[in-house]
Simulated scan of single mutants.
Amino acid sequence: MDELVREWTARLLDTGNVTALVVGVVALVLVCYRSTWRVLRNVVTIAHEGGHAVVALLSGRKLNGIRLHSDTSGLTVSTGKAHGPGMVFTLLAGYPAVSLLGLGGAWLVTADLARVMLWVCIGLLVVMLLAIRNAYGVLSVVITGAVLFAVSWYATPAWQASCCALLSWFLLFGGIRPIAELRGKRVRGRASESDADQLARLTGLPGGVWLGTWFLVGIAALVVGAQWLLVMPQV
């Protein structure tokens, strides 16, 4: 056990991994600091609503549109049965989508595929843009896509890897904070139409069960993603 800890520590203190650790700390600050979170939470909302949209389509529902709002909330509207597995999975998908995207990004960074990650994200944003139904949503998606395009086009490979690591860390941390925020809103009785409460009405399981499930998924993704980013060769 001691040998394993020493080996892990040695790999962590490798120059590239120290860089990844610093990037992770920066991402954590961006998520925890209220002013930066208020702006960057739009990225989390895009991923959240994208998760709803993808699962809605995969479950056979018709996607009517996505709206992103200036208060960083969002709404994905789909039509189909108002109950059953399709609706349940659609509602379930939003919060885990953020963490799972961060986990996927972490894997791509450690596999030295940062440029691929950038273009996959840009492609997903272009597709999502087709479903956006309000001006603020269009602006949010276009700005996010423009930043990613600039990194992919102008940044050196090392900077691309660092930026992708930052995005991965941000999604891994950012996938957890909204769950805590939702819990607080539910305690104050201000989230009766939240994903958790809608799931509670559909399934009979308390909303807290869904919050707990999302939290565990987020923590698991963070642990695995952090291990990939910190102890595997990258940047």
Rank of each mutant, 00 (worst) to 15 (best):
45 T>R: 03
157 P>K: 05
97 A>S: 11
204 G>E: 12
109 V>I: 12
139 L>C: 03
88 V>P: 04
222 L>N: 04
204 G>Q: 01
177 R>S: 06
38 R>I: 01
8 W>Q: 09
146 A>W: 07
227 Q>W: 14
1 M>E: 11
56 A>T: 11
116 V>I: 14
116 V>C: 06
140 S>P: 10
44 V>Y: 00
157 P>G: 00
33 Y>I: 11
50 G>E: 04
199 L>R: 09
33 Y>A: 15
120 V>R: 04
147 V>A: 13
13 L>W: 12
159 W>A: 09
222 L>W: 03
205 L>R: 08
13 L>P: 01
111 A>W: 10
176 I>F: 02
60 G>M: 12
231 V>E: 12
209 V>P: 05
108 L>F: 07
35 S>A: 15
126 V>D: 06
4 L>H: 09
162 S>E: 12
218 G>S: 03
75 L>Y: 00
96 P>D: 06
110 T>L: 02
159 W>F: 08
3 E>R: 14
164 C>P: 04
154 Y>A: 08
119 W>P: 03
62 K>L: 09
92 L>I: 03
193 E>P: 03
6 R>W: 11
183 R>G: 05
79 T>N: 12
173 F>A: 09
211 L>C: 05
100 L>V: 14
4 L>F: 01
136 Y>F: 14
106 A>C: 02
34 R>E: 15
198 Q>P: 07
75 L>S: 05
50 G>A: 06
89 F>E: 11
18 V>D: 00
128 M>P: 03
85 P>C: 07
81 K>R: 14
20 A>E: 04
66 I>D: 01
98 V>Q: 10
84 G>Q: 01
221 A>R: 08
6 R>A: 13
78 S>G: 05
